[in-house]
Design a protein around this nucleic acid. Sequence first.
DNA 1: CGAAGGGGGTTGAATGTTCAACACAGCGAT
DNA 2: ATCGCTGTGTTGAACATTCAACCCCCTTCG
Lengths: 168, 168
Amino acid sequence: MTDTTDDAPWLTPEQHRAWISILTLTQALPAALDAQLKRDARMNCFEYYVLARLSEAPGRTMRMSALAALAQGSLSRLSHAVTRLEKSGWVSRRPSPEDGRHTEAQLTPAGWKKVQQVAPGHVREARRLVVDVLTPTQLTQLRRAARAVVDAAAPGWLDSALVVLSNS
Amino acid sequence: MTDTTDDAPWLTPEQHRAWISILTLTQALPAALDAQLKRDARMNCFEYYVLARLSEAPGRTMRMSALAALAQGSLSRLSHAVTRLEKSGWVSRRPSPEDGRHTEAQLTPAGWKKVQQVAPGHVREARRLVVDVLTPTQLTQLRRAARAVVDAAAPGWLDSALVVLSNS
DNA sequence: CGAAGGGGGTTGAATGTTCAACACAGCGAT
DNA sequence: ATCGCTGTGTTGAACATTCAACCCCCTTCG
């Protein structure tokens, strides 16, 4: 692959190194987060973020579609995930009273307790893997670079994930 | 999650923004790469990297375990993937003549042709999503930050992926 | 030699995600 | 009223990955 394609110019060595490093990041980081959550809480990262987002919502309740946007997954993926979370007793689901087309997912008391239990370990992992291994300057640089890439790959996606920060 | 855990201190707003941006990156970038490859070549990113790594190997042949390390996947994952690639006629598999315990995977002529076809599009996507949206300085910063995170999350992993660069 | 052990690789079951089809509530037009 | 139409959400099948069990070949040691 290195020098076999001359029409579409290949990457310089530095670009290639960067590319590989970034790709490896996108594999290693989610894997590590999933591993920690699976080990300590028997759930995967997506399920945790569903609970976390719900825990921040008013009444700990959200419509499925809004939750899907915030947790960055398809509606189908969310529906399957909520089915599992419902079976664990952490979330309950019911048609919206105002608009029967919508479904509202609500965090149960057990789910709220679970989030509180699990969050510290997750934050600790976030620190251990990212925040603590970078200088504040590096962290900001990384944020800016990540934003640029995300905007190219999935425009608007990051904004829907960052909405929640406006009320913190 | 924002202010519910006081024992394990939560992240500052800037740290939180960075964290979300990075997480979004780890989701959006692989998704975009997979989408491009699926659309243009009917294969996923992992399968493409298997072919690409094979194409760089002497004799376009590698032992399964070495290939797994280079492509950053488990042996089982690789075995399943190679089964699919074999069905497509792009890879062939046979026990190693020297040591019957090993299996050697070899790129077929059709596989070689396929890689040459697909590589330009993949590189183009790498440029479009990453290389072209960052300044050279940002790219280097991103590489360094990614390396630090990967070293924390999966020590040694990045090195095995970068081996190939020594002969370019 | 022959048996035990270890490492490489494969396999099938379980789990999770995607994709396409479907069900259903509300809305708007006739 | 009723007939579509649209958008929300669910479901089951197909697919990919993980996990654990297993097979086989080589090595080593009795």
